[in-house]
């Protein structure tokens, strides 16, 4: 425990002095401001306005005749603000550990502190655990603050519990995965292009979210796809989604837990074989 506390304290202090706190507070302020500045309308509102303006009852009647196949349970339309928060909970909150765990690793490589760590009894397991716990904790904290500043007070305790659990498993996965990816680069310059590309690719499920008819099976395997729908269901229908036909929340927990375990094993092996073996760092 003492070792974990020391490592986490050093990592957090380093990040704090790398302007991490300022960056995160600024991001949070801008996000919350954006939330309150956009109009809270829905796509259905806009559709109704257009139909009224066109005043075309024949068209409306023809549309009503068309057979409709629902991809899931019919739901109330989601407002713009809620949509924004759903997206930000995945693509802002969960990206945090991916980026900052890499930034800190490169700081350690630059300082050469891993070499000094290797001649202590600390070991690979504690090193990895400290990083994952710290960044998962910060992910949860940031997510909770963001929700409290926006839609959090309207959530039931069960929804809060479901959201915290999701942030926990997703935070563990993304911090382990972020470390695993960063281990293959010697500096942030080398990591930047592949790392940012990976983040951009991970955002493809937004297309499916905005246009649900575009849901090829390969995109449903993206962790961000599962997270996006799990967050949506927790924030809109609550843990009832666990029992629903799509079971997006329950399925996401299982999927994220498996990914978290796999990423942790991969990160441990890579840390031991690469980071703790490098001769000159």
């Amino acid at each position: 425990m003492r070792t974990l506390a020391s490592l986490m304290s050093a990592e957090f202090t380093t990040m704090r002095r790398n302007l991490f706190s300022i960056i995160m507070v600024l991001t949070l302020v801008l996000t919350v401001a954006g939330f309150y500045l956009i109009p809270d309308s829905t796509h259905q509102d806009l559709g109704g306005a257009v139909a009224a303006a066109d005043d075309a009852p024949e068209l409306e009647a023809a549309l009503a005749e068309l057979p409709v196949r629902y991809l899931g349970e019919p739901r109330d339309p989601i407002g713009n603000r809620m949509s924004l928060i759903i997206n930000l909970m995945v693509f802002e909150v969960l990206i945090l550990p991916f980026v900052f765990i890499a930034v800190n690793l490169f700081q350690e490589k630059q300082d050469g502190t891993i070499r000094a760590y290797r001649v202590t009894p600390g070991g690979t397991g504690r090193y990895l655990t400290a990083k994952m716990l710290l960044w998962t904790g910060l992910t949860i904290l940031y997510g909770v603050v963001l929700l409290l500043c926006t839609v959090g007070f309207g959530l039931s305790p069960a929804s809060w519990a479901a959201m915290l659990l999701l942030l926990l498993v997703a935070g563990l996965f993304i911090s382990a995965f972020g470390l695993f990816v960063a281990l293959f680069f010697s500096s942030i310059n080398g990591w930047f292009l592949p790392g940012i590309s990976l983040l951009l690719v991970s955002q493809l499920p937004i297309v499916s979210y905005l246009f649900p008819t575009f849901s090829p099976s390969w995109i449903t395997w993206f962790p961000t796809y599962r997270l996006l729908y799990a967050v949506r269901d927790i924030l809109t229908i609550g843990p009832a989604g666990l029992m629903g036909p799509g079971d997006t929340i329950g399925g996401s927990y299982g999927y994220m837990a498996i990914l978290a375990l796999a990423a942790t094993i991969a990160a441990f092996a890579a840390t031991k074989r690469i980071l703790m073996k490098e001769a000159r760092i």
Binding site: R2, A5, S6, S9, D111, G112, T113, A116, P121
Partner: peptide, 24 residues
């Protein structure tokens, strides 16, 4: 070490406290 390998964002005291925490 010949190359000191210190946490450059931490103070001297913080470096020693961190290091002390790694031992049982």
């Amino acid at each position: 070490f010949e190359l000191p390998n210190l946490y450059t964002k931490l103070t001297g005291l913080e470096n020693l406290k961190l290091h002390a925490g790694l031992f049982s």
